[in-house]
Design a protein around this nucleic acid. Structure first.
Lengths: 204, 204
DNA sequence: TTTGCTTTTGACATTTTTGTCAAATAGGAA
DNA sequence: TTCCTATTTGACAAAAATGTCAAAAGCAAA
């Protein structure tokens, strides 16, 4: 039997993954170091060897989640793409990454409540919000859409983002397993592309 | 100066309101009995006089929130109403109640993660989920809609429910105050009614 | 005022969770 | 093997939070 000697980095990665799982599920206050240690398959005391205390560990995990969320959001969208195309590209990119980690979405939503200052950075550093909002406004000016850009924008965010944040709720409502849910979300990607097309057509 | 003697019920109500505030903000694990007592303006020990322990208090608060959520959801919808009308009625009823307490929505979403068994009751006791889902299915059979009932259903839930759950996120994204948000949500009600009409038209 | 009840309070006990430390262990290099 | 360092472990300390209890205080009726 081969024992792979783990380097410090590897162990840290295992711990972070375990911590991530527990933190996402129970939040900072609800997470127990013992549970994280068990999940990581190490002694609780060892946690302190790698991360001085709970707060440090949380910060380490959090900043990674933070990065991961950023990666979901395509930062370069062609300036002159049609709005419809922008939305479709965005959706595809978001789904591609989010399906792997739907837990992050609810976490994110909560962080906007508990740490709004941090979240502001996420938005500010990333002008995507303004970009899409403005794209909606331009589209309205061009006569492709009627009404209010903000409402359209929120609708778009809702139909893409919410089903990830509400993963557990949806599972209960549709009375389906985790696999069913993932399956369902895969097909939702196509559904949303269709939804976007219809959204524009219905305005004509 | 008049001292109003408080009856037990009144004191309980004060405590529940204080507890509600703290629980909604910090969750069960994050809430401190001391903070709740301070918020209620009583000694911590008195909490135990009214509610044996933290869990009991949480249950009391929770079951009220529970009831409040239920009230948002119209339980009697005419069986033979057109789907379009069902959705519009549902939306109006939901908005009417939710605008007052948008905090509950995110709380609810979290509870589906942390206490799925409890949430199952909320859904089971209330056959509204199945009712609307089936209404979508019937509508598809009648040819009013194409595609998958579950997708339509989730879209509908998303555009109505999500903007409440994401209150803080939306405020940051639209860079607006709480008042602006409320204003915005009021106008969203009308927007959604229009959205529903278009949703059906676009399928023809 | 006395009595009998409800409510509040503070001191203390218990439990739970986190943090510290020194000793033990492992594993590679000399 | 021996030495050195990195890591793990278990015993313990400390802190944080909750729970208990009996005594005190409040209040209304007799």
């Amino acid at each position: 039997m081969i024992l792979t000697t783990q380097t410090r980095k590897e162990t840290e990665a295992i711990i972070k993954q375990a911590a991530r799982k527990v933190f996402l599920q129970k939040g900072l206050a609800g997470a127990r170091l013992q549970e994280i240690a068990d999940e990581a398959g190490i002694g609780r005391t060892s946690l302190h060897y790698y991360y001085k205390n709970k707060e440090m560990l949380f910060n380490a995990v959090f900043s990674e989640n933070f990065q991961e969320i950023k990666k979901r959001i395509p930062y370069q969208l062609e300036e002159n793409l049609a709005l419809k195309e922008i939305l479709i590209q965005f959706t595809k990119e978001y789904f591609r990454n989010a399906i792997k980690n739907p837990d992050l979405d609810l976490f994110l939503l909560n962080e906007f409540c508990s740490h709004p200052e941090l979240m502001l950075n996420l938005i500010k550093g990333h002008e995507i919000t303004q970009f899409i909002l403005q794209a909606f406004e331009k589209s309205i000016q061009k006569g492709e859409l009627k009404g209010n850009a903000q409402q359209h924008f929120i609708t778009f965010i809702s139909v893409t983002f919410f089903p990830f944040a509400a993963k557990n709720m949806i599972q209960q409502m549709l009375q389906c397993s985790e696999n069913d849910y993932i399956q369902y979300m895969h097909s939702r990607e196509d559904y949303i592309v269709g939804f976007i097309h219809q959204y524009f057509n219905s305005q004509l």
